[in-house]
Design a protein around this nucleic acid. Sequence first.
DNA 1: ATCATGACATGTT
DNA 2: TAACATGCCATGA
Length: 125
Amino acid sequence: MPDFAARVLSIVRRIPVGRVATYGDVAAAAGSPRASRAVGNIMRNCASRDVPCHRVVAAAGRLGGYGGNLELKRALLRAEGLTVTRTVIREFRDRRWPSAAQGRPGRRIQPAARARAKTGKSRAT
DNA sequence: ATCATGACATGTT
DNA sequence: TAACATGCCATGA
């Protein structure tokens, strides 16, 4: 269903200059907050140059990946007025996409995912 | 507290 | 089916 992809592209295109969004944010805006991987995949295609895939970064302000030209991504970000360190963006949460809820009042837990995330290993006591 | 690892979730290719 | 430019949580060191 290309809808998702189209939606993602549309969203990424709406990212203003000097601002960045995470795959998760884009995915969430696209309708599936868990489809961050899908977003990355779609970006990888980068069918449209109108899509500033370089403005899409990983969580925590990390750049994430960029088809072998990761430094290019950093350069682009810096060129937009962002401050990027070796691995993360400074003031990231301050430069986050306005629509992406800057305020993160604690992380919501997902009982479902968490229940399976236990790896089934021996848990303490 | 931080880094790394394991596992699952979600969608496209 | 498996891989991927991820994310989140919990655990282990």
